[in-house]
Nucleic acid binder design. Structure first.
Lengths: 151, 151
DNA sequence: TACAATTAAATTGTGCGCAATATGAATTGT
DNA sequence: ACAATTCATATTGCGCACAATTTAATTGTA
């Protein structure tokens, strides 16, 4: 049992496929997002806010599976750039509500070109892509369920 | 064209599926790798070394799609932990060759249990998983080709 | 009302991940 | 032979990502 098939081969790992695909996505996004002044995680936060504005940090974290340790500094950077405002909710002072500034709203227009450009890079097979996405999300949810069980 | 279908919906993004699946994998791996004293990227490096020992940093970087800015400090940490040795290649002083210590080789045994544990968490459908992995790798390679073209 | 438990953010510390740059060694061209 | 180029690695700086802890506000309950 020296090796060969103990499952420790890199090429066998589904996780590595996902891991390296994530990096590859980042490289495709970078030149598209740089002109907008956004990193990829910042872009995801903006997607959430463009769908629904004026939400607490908690909600953003739930949508993106990120915690306050990641979001607090990220949102402060977006605030520094003038894209969002951070204000305590008067009705519940524990919450910080995130709202788009006019600049943040306006950024949506140039951002519209991004998904098509990425789609072109993925060689989007339209229907096949939807199916692949669904399978990856199903995988993710099984992983979350499995790690959640351990708690 | 207020919104709805300009492609900026989070749920439409294949990239987000991959991004969040990557995080979910990390959460599953963490409790499995913690007892081994490895992070997930360190585990990937060890997978490479368990397949072929005594390789230059460059080769590890090519297999994992990582550069020296990531690998140099990571490998120093593995060296500090006594798992690898880093030595300049006498034949080509530019290269640093990475070799497993006896401890690094020995770590392979307890690591054998990891893939099966992760497989259980993914609800591995065996053949279906292989197919999904292949699709994700194909996607990744298209993305790499697309971002490489821009250079 | 008091007071424990819960909740939302923020903070601290560690480890990636990558761009940009630096350093020194090997290779190439003339 | 030697200058120019290329190459492998290291360094610096910034931005995630997350565990662990802290702070402050709210809720639940006796």
């Amino acid at each position: 049992m020296t090796d060969k098939d103990d499952g420790l081969k890199l090429d066998r790992q589904l996780c590595f496929a996902v891991y390296s695909a994530g990096h590859a996505f980042n490289r495709v996004y970078k030149p598209l997002l740089d002109p907008l002044g956004l990193t990829y995680p910042q872009y995801l936060v903006m997607l959430v806010l463009w769908e629904r504005d004026d939400v607490p940090v908690k909600i953003i974290g739930e949508r993106l599976h990120l915690d306050s340790g990641t979001l607090t500094p990220l949102l402060k950077r977006l605030e520094t750039q003038g894209l969002v405002m951070r204000e305590r909710d008067p009705g519940d002072e524990r919450q910080v509500r995130i709202r788009l500034t006019p600049e943040g709203q306006a950024l949506r227009e140039p951002a519209r070109a991004v998904p098509a450009a990425v789609g072109a890079a993925t060689g989007f097979a339209g229907e096949g892509m939807r199916e692949l996405k669904a399978q990856i999300l199903a995988l993710r949810d099984r992983l979350i369920a499995a790690s959640g069980d351990g708690d």
